[in-house]
Design a protein around this nucleic acid. Sequence first.
DNA 1: TATAAGCGCAACTTTACAGTTGCACAAATT
DNA 2: AATTTGTGCAACTGTAAAGTTGCGCTTATA
Lengths: 112, 112
Amino acid sequence: MPKDLRRDVFQAIADPTRRAILSLIALQAMTPNALAEHFDTSRQAVSKHIKILTECQLVTQKLAGREIYYHFNAKQMKEVDQWLEQFRKLWEDRFNQLDQVLFNLKPDDYEN
Amino acid sequence: MPKDLRRDVFQAIADPTRRAILSLIALQAMTPNALAEHFDTSRQAVSKHIKILTECQLVTQKLAGREIYYHFNAKQMKEVDQWLEQFRKLWEDRFNQLDQVLFNLKPDDYEN
DNA sequence: TATAAGCGCAACTTTACAGTTGCACAAATT
DNA sequence: AATTTGTGCAACTGTAAAGTTGCGCTTATA
């Protein structure tokens, strides 16, 4: 139960549509209409996703006449990267652990 | 609107309690009761989180008598790491872009 | 100036989900 | 054998969230 509004990066990237939006605008800034064409949802639905992405500053806006171009802000993604840091050693060490298991099973192989 | 059950890693780590659970059991495997003592929620609530984490294989179980030890499986976290890959260049290039902006503002500084 | 295009916002619906309480069951403990 | 302990599961509640439709505002275009 979210006691307060969870507008953090982790919640933002939880939705697959939002992840796709980020991948798209990371390549090129786009308007909501252009974005909506890539999905099977309405423009308003895309705008809602954009709003959530904007609230955690993963996306910034740039007005051009009556069009609004949404830009990707990679900086905020660092938070996820930093959180992953504590686990990197673990999935890297998996090979070492496997190595150790193999050594315990038949250490002779390691003498060849 | 989730049309199907979204039991992927991204949805799993969206919840702050689940992220904390993962950080805890990454250091040491724990039972649900032991985990619940770290949070302001019931054991059953923790079990629900564990269930979600188990469904996307971020957590594995190991029975020891009537106790169940939950282990962290770092391998599944690679999916997040790989998704981040497409953005790493962008936040690294930010310094280059900033450099370009500064150059456009006052290129004289670059001649000193 | 009238009209079309591009947006955001508000209201509403449906579903997922985080939490609770209660209960049943198996394994230790007495 | 009775009791305590550790756990999962089911039922229920409240809230967030994803989607829709309709509307109004602003900016181009005819």
